[in-house]
């Protein structure tokens, strides 16, 4: 209680002073001055969490702070030390109004096609000095697919941030996700990739005493080709024995030579997706 009263008394003291007058508001990075009254030399401190500055001042003159001298937004104390006496007052430095950089969080960088709301973007708007601009501003978010289709949303920032979600396209390929505000933009690339294989089918033919098994061109359910390197598992079952082989898709199909056992069952799968089964020697 006593401490509180003491603080209150000390805090009130500078308010009664008339030796310096502060501007009502300061914009980050802009020039400003603090006029002083009286005579003699003194020291002026500007102290906050964003910056700490010291100036020797001639009382009775204005102390100039050029553009770029005080650039971090926040609360500051101006303290005038004149010999044994000090006086202080608080003022606020606001972010510059002009956006300069964007903090653009776009996720994911890769996702399957046809996912509703699967792509999200959050944009933080900063000024030249990396202060968050908290006044509402319109941000444009655009997702452009390689095919030319585009989704576009304009969102007004709240407390310096705007966000949206977008759908991934039905066709695979990279998409450009762009956040734009007042001539400033930031781009991310979203890789839209095929989904799980769909309608996986195999055929077999004899090959020098073995059987060559190969898939039809492998696609997802939207018709996008499954990328090369995707693993297709072939399983051949015969006489209580089994042969399996994990084969990567190359040039759109997976192919393997397996032992030729009459009556053997040959099946195919990729991940958790199963394909057709054929019986060797007995037709399909």
């Amino acid at each position: 209680m006593l401490i509180g009263l003491a603080l209150a008394a000390v805090s009130m003291a500078p308010a009664q002073s008339v030796h310096m007058s502060l501007p009502p508001s300061v914009t980050a990075g802009s020039a400003f001055s603090i006029p002083t009254a009286g005579s003699g030399k003194a020291v002026l401190y500007i102290v906050g969490q964003g910056q700490a500055i010291r100036r020797d001042v001639q009382m009775g003159e204005a102390t100039m702070f050029p553009a770029g001298a005080l650039y971090n937004a926040g609360e500051y104390l101006a303290i005038l030390v004149n010999g044994a006496s000090t006086e202080s007052a608080g003022f606020y430095v606001s972010p510059a109004p002009q956006p300069e950089t964007l903090g653009f969080l776009a996720k994911p960088s890769r996702l399957p096609v046809g996912i509703r709301g699967g792509i999200s973007g959050a944009v933080y708007v900063f000024d030249t000095y990396h202060n968050l601009i908290t006044t509402p501003l319109p941000v444009s978010l655009e997702l452009a697919n390689a095919s030319g289709t585009m989704q576009s949303h304009t969102i007004t920032t709240r407390n310096g941030v705007a966000w949206t979600t977008m759908d991934s396209a039905a066709k695979e390929g990279p998409a450009k996700f762009v956040a734009r505000i007042a001539g400033v933009s930031s781009t991310r690339v979203i890789d839209q990739v095929p989904g799980d294989p769909c309608g996986l089918t195999i055929t077999a033919r004899p090959n020098n005493g073995k059987v060559t098994v190969q898939t039809a061109p492998v696609h997802d359910c939207s018709g996008n080709p499954i990328p090369d390197g995707t693993i297709v598992t072939f399983t051949e079952t015969y006489n209580d024995q089994q042969s399996t082989v994990d084969v990567p898709i190359k040039q759109g199909i997976a192919r393997v030579d397996m032992p030729a056992y009459p009556g053997a069952k040959i099946s195919v799968a990729s991940g958790v997706v199963a394909g057709n089964e054929i019986r060797w020697g007995g037709g399909k």
């Binding site: 390197g229 042969s243 082989v245 994990d246 032992p259």
Partner: peptide, 10 residues
């Protein structure tokens, strides 16, 4: 993606 190993005659 290589090598491919066939697991035969299990």
């Amino acid at each position: 993606a290589d090598p491919v190993i066939e697991v035969q005659d299990q």
